[in-house]
Write a protein that binds this DNA or RNA. Sequence first.
DNA 1: ACAGAGCATAAGTGATTGCGCATGTAGCCA
DNA 2: TGGCTACATGCGCAATCACTTATGCTCTGT
Lengths: 116, 116
Amino acid sequence: MVDQVSGLEPALRAELHELTASLCKALNDPKRLMLIYALAGQSRSVGELCTMLETTQPNVSQHLAMLKERGIVDATRRGTSIFYSLRYPQLVQAIDLLRGVMADEVGRRQDLVSRA
Amino acid sequence: MVDQVSGLEPALRAELHELTASLCKALNDPKRLMLIYALAGQSRSVGELCTMLETTQPNVSQHLAMLKERGIVDATRRGTSIFYSLRYPQLVQAIDLLRGVMADEVGRRQDLVSRA
DNA sequence: ACAGAGCATAAGTGATTGCGCATGTAGCCA
DNA sequence: TGGCTACATGCGCAATCACTTATGCTCTGT
């Protein structure tokens, strides 16, 4: 896929990077990542998510609204509650891959420290 | 890995999400994504990157500094130039995975539009 | 030592972000 | 209908962001 990207017109390539950056922007907040992992495998109501994240209800709703805008998450009403679910479960795998890179880097830094 | 995450103490889990979010923050800018893809497979000088990104030299330097802080990128001096390279080539694969999710979502939205 | 090339850094600015607080809205039950 | 629960939304604030302009630093060649 890298070769496909480098073969694109600069304008198209920039647009693609813009889209990808928009997705990454949804992932650049710890609480949103917690939300995504909380929704991995099962849908949950806003109240449940508030308890899990230990934060206020408006705060959770705002983050959920952003994830919904980007199509990352789906909302369904059941009674008075609204249940959210992940639209793309593969997203969790992608984040895990990023986390793997991060783990390597953390290990490298600890090596540097212990060697000092 | 999801199960490993969900088995962690809440505090540790939050810290891990903080680290991952820090990495995502490095990816949430189109120009930084372009930098990463420009460095995929070969190292490049700041001047080269300025030409490729069509932006000013301080701008590129600032983005590179941020990527370097997070250990995403390495810098080596050769003469008067400084060459940057990707420290974790797997990062590109991870971004490609994210891009795949994005492509699915774009297709879904186009379906919605054409159906209206 | 000096001039210039290549890059980093500092300061200032407008725009965006996450958050708390207050309020609005939709469904359930008496 | 009224009141309650569950959630969404609007507003204001402090913090952060990306960018431009100006300046500093580090090498190389003379």
